[in-house]
Nucleic acid binder design. Structure first.
Lengths: 207, 207
DNA sequence: TTGCGTACCAGACAAACGTCTGGTATTAGT
DNA sequence: ACTAATACCAGACGTTTGTCTGGTACGCAA
């Protein structure tokens, strides 16, 4: 293999490793060697070591596929897969996970048990920037603060509304002048959780 | 280690492996063994093999850390981490990645090179359900169809607007009656990419 | 009871893998 | 011209890691 200008190959190696890391399959030293056509393992190893020394990569010494992105990334939380339910009906949250529409990758401090996602139907929350077919990510909790956007079960139906807590009862306020607040009897309403994220997919209908 | 009800531990192992894979660090068989307190490597290996046999995991035989998410899960696309840029200025897309605010997990068929994310400022797109501080995920492309929501560079400033293609020029339409369309000279506008996803984080400000 | 399947343990082997030592040729600085 | 640094090659060593064989304990059904 011919010689390469200073630092040129190194950048390509960094890009290669980063790509593999983001794809979830960290490369081995020998995979780097092969990808760049080196005839010696040590060559790839030297490049990787130089990248680590320069702080552009991190590694767990001795471990296989031990190269990582630099850890200085401000305590980023792990990514979990959250089930996307097509619709929510009474009791469905306590039953087995119905993998209706797939899983969403969510970066969260909570386990995937504490979260679920839901596709919104209707236009009652357009004023809060939640449009029909948007996906809301919900953290399960039985209570919420006044002003939170929640998923609540009224009778048999689940709806997304803004919660307003009164003295004796709770109100579910839409964010659309064409709709009226729901003021259910306290025993008819169950708060399933709080909306912590809204997503809208503009291409295709995926996921 | 005591005995466990059928299939119970298996599910937890699947969740563990999935989590690690999404975090970019596939576990070894022995790491699974340790995480679940098995005193034999074979036990972890059997569980993993059973998951592979059931199609719930994939693996590259013989390779270290060879367990992967099954690629055939209804064509679910891999999750990639997309850089979230605090702001976009001229030329910054071609330069090195500025890891300003972190990375977003995105399920996409494109490589992470083709995508970036951007925090929206201003209220010009509230009519399309894009509020201030929302995050838009953008696929890099130099052209787009009329009606697409795009990120465009007008002079030195990047904006999110709906694209309208006229005969000789393009127009950038806000979705808010309080703002007026931008009709720039063709040489003053560059389309950076098309918005394919909108995200809003309602808890904390972090993704 | 016997037989079968599952969950787990114990230990070992070979392949994969990170790391090291030593060497050659090219480039860059002085 | 001399030196230092860089890019690469060759091979080897020891650890990590996937995989295998054989065995124990428990539950379930015939």
């Amino acid at each position: 293999m011919g010689r390469t200008p200073a630092g040129k190959t190194r950048e390509r190696i960094l890009a290669f490793v980063r790509e593999r890391l983001l794809a979830g399959m960290p490369p081995t030293v020998r995979e780097v060697q092969e990808a760049f056509g080196f005839r010696a393992v040590g060559t790839a190893h030297e490049h990787l070591e130089a990248l680590v020394a320069g702080g552009r990569l991190a590694r767990e010494r001795g471990k296989s596929r031990g190269f990582r992105l630099p850890t200085t990334r401000r305590g980023e939380k792990p990514v979990v897969l959250v089930p996307l339910l097509g619709c929510v009906q009474a009791g469905s949250l306590t039953t087995a996970i119905e993998d209706l529409e797939g899983h969403l990758p969510i970066r969260s401090g909570h386990g995937s048990d504490a979260l679920f996602a839901l596709r919104v139907e209707g236009e009652s929350m357009t004023g809060a920037g939640i449009l029909p077919r948007d996906v809301v990510v919900v953290r399960k909790q039985a209570a919420a603060h006044s002003g939170d956007i929640v998923v609540a079960l009224v009778g048999e139906e689940a709806t997304v509304k803004r919660l307003v807590v009164r003295k004796k009862r709770v109100e579910l306020h839409p964010e659309n002048p064409a709709f009226s607040p729901i003021v259910p009897e306290p025993e008819d309403v169950t708060i399933l959780g709080k909306v912590i994220e809204v997503r809208r997919y503009l291409e295709g209908s995926h996921p």
